[in-house]
């Protein structure tokens, strides 16, 4: 069965923000509803915690880190699900049930996962 990543682009909240707690039940509810098709996923700490890593001079070269370039943005990649779906229509139907797609906090990007098998 093909898999799709449902990338959640939404308001970037710190876990301590009351809005974060208010959001949790919506995601728990989606988690139950989509239990049969969810193959993985994660919620991410906010943009301010991001570190971008680049290596100059090829493998083993100097490791250059930057404090995420997104510091000032309000929206960001806040999490993702890996879902199984027969085709894009099915994947879109699941994505439409993810809270970020309908609660005004952002949107969901659906991407097919490459099957190297």
């Amino acid at each position: 069965m093909p898999q799709y990543a449902a990338l959640i682009w939404s308001t970037d909240l710190e876990p301590s923000d009351p809005a974060f707690a208010a959001m949790m039940p919506r995601y728990e509810s989606f988690g139950h509803e989509a239990e049969a098709v969810i193959r993985g996923g994660a919620a991410l700490y906010n943009n301010a915690t991001a570190t971008v890593v680049r290596v100059t001079g090829g493998k083993g070269g100097d490791v250059v880190t930057t404090d995420g370039p997104y510091a000032e943005t309000k929206e960001g990649l806040t999490g993702f699900y890996l879902v199984e779906a027969a085709d894009l229509d099915e994947a879109i139907a699941w994505a439409a049930k993810i809270p970020a797609a309908w609660d005004g906090s952002g949107c969901v990007e659906v991407r097919p996962v490459i099957d190297f098998g």
Partner: peptide, 8 residues
């Protein structure tokens, strides 16, 4: 092909 837009 990759995203499997259904032929339906």
């Amino acid at each position: 092909a990759a995203a499997r837009i259904p032929y339906r």
